[in-house]
Design a binder for these strands. Structure first.
Lengths: 150, 150
DNA sequence: AAGCTGAGTATGGAATTTGAACTCAGCGCG
DNA sequence: CGCGCTGAGTTCAAATTCCATACTCAGCTT
């Protein structure tokens, strides 16, 4: 068998794995809605940003809406869809890894906190029976479903 | 200020955000150690795989070791480091999103389970006081530490 | 009517990616 | 000892993608 492994990680990355995609999503989830602002905050070139936004909209991760600020003409803004919001754990996990391993002398630049209690939020691995797994994934087992004892 | 946002997501993606990097890591975490096998399972071109492996090693995510299978000469194999294992939550989060939103008719191709109890494992958002957040990140608040949005 | 601004398009050169071919080392066989 | 095989890359040209800069277009404000 020399076909690459069938895997949801690969499928997800085909959609959000291109450069800038996750940063665009980060901005939108932070509440930044407009093309120019997203461009400024991410640093993505405009042409690429156009492509990415289109792709994220097509994938059902963002939604493009018209709106009309006072004294301006109709603009477009990008909102997260439910599917887009469900990528939060990916962003939080990436962020906490970066915080741990790549933070500069000033420490993490952004803190994610629980709106209700102010506590720092982390992505944890938990099994359906409520057992917590360590952050390094020890105790985790991958079970392919189309290989082996078929 | 027109500099892009300082953010650990961006920093992490600078290291693991290139094409193939996370798939290579997935393989290594699944126990695939050798160049040719990683190449087969991911589908990455050899030249790119060489680059990515080197970069992951440089970043302290993988470690390259020599070993000697019976009847063969010395080979190299790639092992995850602790920092590499700490990316598990990222992979699990990506996988669960793909499972939910991109699974084909056969359902998810791989299942992550808790070695001790067999229960399905998920990446959850939890605050330090033990409060669980919903998977779509509602109740999550980002607090920048050096930038004001207005 | 002209100017300004947000949201893109157009464009051409630089950087990456790709697949296919090539290299190199060393073990097992004869 | 020389030969072929295999794993782990390296080289190379073509295709793709990325990037910076310049250009367009709509419509509100003056």
């Amino acid at each position: 068998m020399d076909t690459p492994r069938a895997c949801s990680v690969a499928r997800s990355l085909e959609i959000v794995g291109e450069r800038w995609s996750l940063l665009v999503l980060r901005e939108v989830l932070l509440g930044v809605r407009r093309f120019a602002d997203i461009q400024r905050h991410t640093g993505a070139p405009r042409a690429v940003l156009t492509q990415r936004l289109r792709r994220l909209v097509d994938a059902g991760i963002l939604e493009r809406r018209d709106y009309r600020p006072d004294g301006e003409r109709t603009r477009q803004e990008y909102h997260p869809t439910p599917a887009g919001r469900e990528l939060q754990p990916v962003l939080v996990a990436l962020m906490q890894w970066g915080d741990r391993h790549l933070a500069g002398p000033d420490g993490p630049p952004v803190r994610m906190e629980h709106h209700d209690c102010g506590g720092a939020v982390h992505a944890h691995l938990v099994c359906e029976h409520g057992h917590a797994l360590p952050g390094d994934g020890r105790g985790l087992r991958a079970v392919p479903r189309d290989v082996g004892a078929g």
